[in-house]
Every structure is written in C-alpha cells, then in structure tokens.
Simulated scan of single mutants.
Amino acid sequence: MSQAAEKPSSAEPLLLRNDRNGVATLTLNRPAQRNSLSEGLMIALTEELGAIAKDASVRCVVLAGSGTMFCSGHDLKELTVARAEADRGRAYYEKIMKLCSTMMQAIVNLPKPVIARVHGIATAAGCQLVASCDLAVAAEGTRFATPGVNIGLFCSTPMVALSRNVSRKHAMEMLLTGDMIDADRAADMGLINEAVPADELDRAVTELAEKIASKSSLTLAIGKEAFYRQLEKPLGEAYDFASEAMVKNMLARDAEEGIGAFIEKRQPIWQDK
C-alpha cells in the first residue's frame, strides 16, 4: 500500500487498507489529530485511490476513520505554519486546495463505488469527504457541519460537494450558520443514506458494500461515470449521453449474461467485460 509519512520518524501509516470479499476499506489513521486532512494524508489517499482504480480484485471501497471520529477537516495547525512565509502562505494554500480538490475528484472519478462509514464527527473538509462519496452510512449520534464561517474561513470547497448532495436551502443553512446537524437530519437532507445504531454500523456498511461488490464491475463503472456526467448536462444532452451509455452497456458481455440469467431464472456469472 502506498503511504506518505508526515515525519521520517513516523511509525504509523497515515492510511490503512484492508481488502476482503472484493471490498477495500481505507481508514484515515490520524486519530490523535481527529483524522484531519494533512498534506501527507491527502497524498496517501489520492495515491491509494489511483492504485485501486487499476486493481481488478476491488469492486467497492469503504472510506472510514480510526479512533473516535471520521474526519474533522483540514489540519489547521499545518495550514497556520505557512503564514510565516513571505507570501503569507499563498503558494502553500493554493497547493493544498488543489491537492484536496484532486483527492475529492479522485473519489468521484474512481470506477468503483465508494461508501463513507461515518462516526463521531465529519466537519468542514471531512463533511466534504462524506458528500464526495457515492454512498454514506453513519452511526446515530454522528454530527456533521461546515463550520468555517465560525472561524472566518467560509467552507467554499466543501460547498462544492455539499451543494451537489443536498438542496440549496439546506446547503446554505449549513454553510451560513456553521451549526452541527445530527445523523438523522443528515439522512433527511440527503447528505447520507442512512443512520444506524452505532453497534450496527459495521454490519450495515459491510452488507451494503458486499451487495454492491456482487455486481458486475463493468456495469458499476459504466453506471457511476454516467451518473455524474449526466448531472452536469442540460436535460436533452443528459438523455443523449445516457442513451449512449445504455447502448454501450447493452453490447457488453455482462449485460448479455445478466439478461439471459434473468430470463432463465438463474444467478449470473460475471466476466466484468
């Protein structure tokens, strides 16, 4: 597994990976720093997603956080250090924002579904991380926020993912107030799919991930790409694009097998092509 170390002496990897039954679980591993997104952690996650994109054994990804919470957002202490530079940190901040945007887009562009397993808190860029995933399941009691406005730093980049998941009014409420919302409200707003009791979180995420992993990986890749690309198009263009995707999918071997298995009342055997 690729990993980036924040310090040469760092003994713990910033990102953990565990593969089981076609599901790769990636765990943010900075528990003492509330799993904040340091430069090193963002590099590690982006690199690992790139490796998974080419790994045919992985059919679904789960993104989790170690310790007591999912992710508290950017590492503000790391960002503050850059203010000592002659440009007051401009070059470093531009680098970090580009890195963060690249990482978030790597999740969206990954040809495998990504599920956020959320507990504790998911704030600022941590909330953005949840919104960037294709699906999200949270433990009851988890809290979400885009609280940058409270410290004079509007959550402009988290806003991109948030506003593509929830309604404008709900997004603006979170962005303008910075208030925490609980998991039940997050589910009602569409930020997550489901809130479950904390002791059932692993079971719920595993069942969802393994259900998705049982599908044709080719079909999942075609569908995920089509979903996000059509969203940004006018209605007519969206239908044209989706129609082309359907034709491409119909000509695939797995569609032939899946339709045949349905007609013959048997389980399909996927070849992922």
Rank of each mutant, 00 (worst) to 15 (best):
D199Q: 05
N109H: 09
K169P: 08
K265I: 12
K7G: 10
L15P: 04
L45R: 01
I181S: 04
E256W: 13
I96D: 02
M1V: 10
A187N: 01
S36F: 07
A11N: 13
Q128N: 13
N150E: 15
L218T: 12
C71P: 01
G126R: 01
E257G: 10
Y239S: 07
V137I: 14
S66G: 04
Q105G: 14
E6C: 12
S101M: 11
I263H: 06
V23M: 00
V196C: 03
S2R: 12
L235K: 10
P158D: 03
K265P: 09
L49K: 03
G152M: 08
P13G: 05
E48F: 01
M250C: 09
L16W: 07
N165Y: 08
V196N: 01
S163M: 13
N29Q: 09
A136P: 02
T80I: 12
E210P: 09
D55M: 02
H170T: 15
A139W: 01
K54G: 07
A261R: 11
K211Q: 02
A221D: 09
N165P: 13
L28T: 00
L45W: 01
L201K: 02
E78Q: 08
V247W: 06
N109S: 14
R143Y: 13
D240G: 12
M172Y: 15
K98D: 12
L129W: 02
K98N: 14
G67L: 07
N165W: 12
D179I: 12
I269M: 11
A213I: 00
